[in-house]
């Protein structure tokens, strides 16, 4: 695969959690690049450092050592407000437990990232939100509150929310872990479709072997170290 400039580059990244007197190394010198259009699965057992790696790639955590470069910019050099802007414009997040705002309906949840740092007009904002909701097949549920939706539908809302800002990268932390296998398959289908049709770059963590079979690139992690990255074209 011809390598363009990396969207995200992690260079010799270390992350240590401190629990009182005890230090727990979560990542031990990870170097990883993600390129536009890739569909990458981060695979490893529980406690291997998948979530920590995603957090660092998404600039919601900082490494104790090493650098995280987003389109060539070292995230550590950015002030907190600038990092917030960067997350808002360039990175979408999908969480295992959906993390929707319960007092907002589907439309409002999806609209949420556009309410900050956005110079879009109201009309443009509405168009973006409707397109994102249509993309995940929830057109008829736009005014439903999250608690009236199934788990799969909620995750679709979360995907729409992650996509609405048209980010360069979508990070998903075990997006199918809380779903039954059929719903999980459909969510992965949707992510694959978005990757292929809209060229959305995905990095998601999973330990579901069935899902891994549908992913173009696997990055295996164990005890905070990469086992070796299997590169491949987007699925």
């Amino acid at each position: 695969m011809a390598m363009s400039q990396a969207l995200i580059r992690l260079e010799d990244v270390h992350r240590i959690y401190r629990l009182g007197e005890t230090e727990v190394p979560a990542l031990r010198g990870i170097t990883l690049e993600l390129h536009a259009g890739e569909f990458t699965a981060l695979v490893g057992p529980s406690g291997s450092g998948k979530s920590t790696l995603l957090n660092l790639a998404g600039c919601i955590d900082e490494p104790d050592r090493g650098r995280v470069l987003v389109e060539g910019v070292d995230a550590a050099t950015l002030a907190d407000d600038a990092r917030s802007r960067l997350r808002n414009r360039k990175i979408g997040f999908i969480f295992q437990s959906f993390n929707l705002v319960p007092v907002l309906d589907v439309y409002e949840n999806v609209e949420l990232p556009l309410l900050v740092h956005s110079h879009l007009s109201k009309v443009e904002r509405r168009e973006r939100v409707h397109r994102a909701i249509d993309d995940v097949g929830l057109h008829d549920y736009a005014r439903h509150p999250p608690d009236k939706l199934s788990g799969g539908q909620r995750q679709r809302v979360a995907i729409a929310r992650a996509l609405v800002t048209q980010p360069i990268l979508v990070l998903a932390d075990e997006p199918t872990a809380n779903l039954d296998s059929e719903t999980a398959r459909r969510i992965v289908d949707l992510m694959v479709e978005l990757n292929q049709k809209r060229n959305v770059t995905f990095l998601f963590s999973t330990h579901d072997e069935k899902l891994m079979a549908r992913v173009g690139r696997h990055v295996r992690i164990r005890d905070g170290r990469l086992d070796g990255a299997a590169s491949g074209a987007a699925a």
Binding site: D80, R87, N88, L112, P113, T165
Partner: peptide, 10 residues
């Protein structure tokens, strides 16, 4: 945390 990850500043 979710809102911060979506880009809300402090």
């Amino acid at each position: 945390g979710t809102l911060r990850s979506l880009g809300f500043t402090r």
